[in-house]
Structure formats: structure tokens, C-alpha cells
Simulated assay, not measured.
Amino acid sequence: MHRYWDKVIKPILIASRPRTIVEIGSMSGLNTFKLLDYCKYCNANCFIIEQTPLYNVELLKAYYGHRATVMERLSLDALPEIVQYDLLLVDGDHNWYTVYHELALAEQMAQRTGRFPIVLLHDTDWPYGRRDMYASPESIPPAFRQAYARQGMEPGRSALLESGGFNAYSNNAVSEHGDRNGVLTAIEDFMKRSVFDLRLFKLYSHHGLGILVPSQSELMLTLPYIIAASGM
């Protein structure tokens, strides 16, 4: 998600001025440290949900202090413990079950506080917009888990490749499209049943970014211009 920082994420931060940020999926921290710099200089806080961070968590805490809270757990276990947040960045486990329920938990928070957060979701285009990937297949209930294999993909082909291809060592759903399959499908299914009036904006570079915004949000005044200026 860090590739969107300069043209999309930073302008959204400036326009919306979030006081509490949640990032799901930080990996090596390329986006995380930029979020924390924002928090440091704008008197905000960031919750980072990442099971296996690829950086020194203690050094991060020492530098950013109380601005940073690192939660080394599954997102669906950690999110309910965060009382309120204004901005949610989702770049963790790219499958229907996880993303749908991350959004459902954000909605539960919003029903308590009266305000749905701005949500940025990575991988809304190929390959995981319409295909599940499981970081930990055992964490997904069998009824919601597609048949999967450790085989790669190529654009324009639904079936997995026999060898090679993109993300060949990930647990990828055997088939593309269909019910309960993929990040974008999860967003669309959530929006159909949400009690909030939400708008979805989509960018298509770098595997896609979905921006989910309450229709009454002040960000609606500037977001179309941010997206147009980004060229993404």
C-alpha cells in the first residue's frame, strides 16, 4: 500500500485529519512509519495489527512512544479491542471472509460511535479482487474457504498455473470469481447489507485500491480531485 502514499494516502490524511488510525498488515513497515510520522507531528495515534512484523517492534515503540500500539494478532481478534478510529487501512489477509468481517467490525464500532471510518483497502483489482488468498488457511472456517493450492496466476486466466506465475508460493483459491471469493467481492457484499450509506472509489494501479467513504463525509468534497490528480 505504500506505493499510494504520496498521491493518495497523504492527501487523504491532510484532508480528513484523522486522530486515530488503524493499519491492518504492515509487513516491513514502509507505509507504517509514514503513518506514524503523521501521528507524531499531528498529535494522532496509530494501532498497527500485524502477526509477523518484519521490523524491530521495540525500537518502533521507543521512537514513537504512545503514538504507536502494535497488536501481533489476527485482525479479527484485535479490531474489537480498539474503541474508536477515523481511518482504517486494510492490507492483511486478502480473502472474502477476513475482509468482509473486518468491515463488519468497523461497522459495529461505527454504530457505537455514530461515525463510520474512512477505509482504504488494497488488492481490489487482479489478482485478489475476485480470488481469495489465505495467509493461514486454518484460520478461515471451512464453510467460507475456497479450494486452494500453492500455485501461481497470470492475468486473463482463471485456473492456477502448473508452475511459475505470480505469487506461486501463496495459498491461492483454485478458481477466480464466484460467491465469497476475493477482496472486491467482500466489499461489495458488505455494502449491500451495511446500515450506513457508503461510497466506493476504485483505483486500478498496483493491484488496486478501494476507498470506502461515508456519503456524508467531508472527504467527499475533495476525494474525487485527489483521485483525478493521482493518475492511478
Score class of each variant (00 low, 15 high):
Tyr225Lys: 12
Ala104Tyr: 03
Ala15Ser: 15
Ile49Asp: 13
Gln146Val: 00
Pro141Met: 02
Arg131Ile: 06
Ile21Trp: 13
Arg157Pro: 01
Ala68Leu: 12
Glu102Trp: 02
Glu176Cys: 13
Val119Lys: 07
Phe144Glu: 06
Asn31Ser: 15
Met109Arg: 06
Ser75His: 12
Gly231Asn: 03
Val8Gln: 12
Glu162His: 06
Ala44Phe: 04
Leu54Trp: 05
Asp86Gln: 08
Ser158Gln: 01
Tyr97Lys: 06
Leu184Cys: 07
Pro18Met: 10
Ala168Ser: 15
Tyr63Glu: 15
Thr20Gly: 06
Ala62Pro: 01
His122Phe: 07
Arg150Phe: 00
Arg17Trp: 01
Arg199Gln: 07
Arg131Met: 02
Ser75Asp: 15
Thr52Leu: 15
Ser139Phe: 03
Asn31Thr: 14
Ser175Gly: 05
Met1Asn: 10
Leu35Trp: 04
Pro214Thr: 08
His101Val: 05
Lys34Cys: 06
Leu209Thr: 10
Gly92Ala: 13
Ala143Lys: 09
Arg130Lys: 13
Gln151Asp: 00
Gly178Phe: 12
Asp125Thr: 07
Tyr41Trp: 09
Leu79Ala: 10
Met133Trp: 00
Asp86Thr: 00
Asp93Lys: 06
Val57Met: 03
Leu121Glu: 07
Asp125Trp: 12
Arg150Gly: 00
Pro53Lys: 02
Lys192Arg: 15
Tyr63Met: 08
Pro142Met: 01
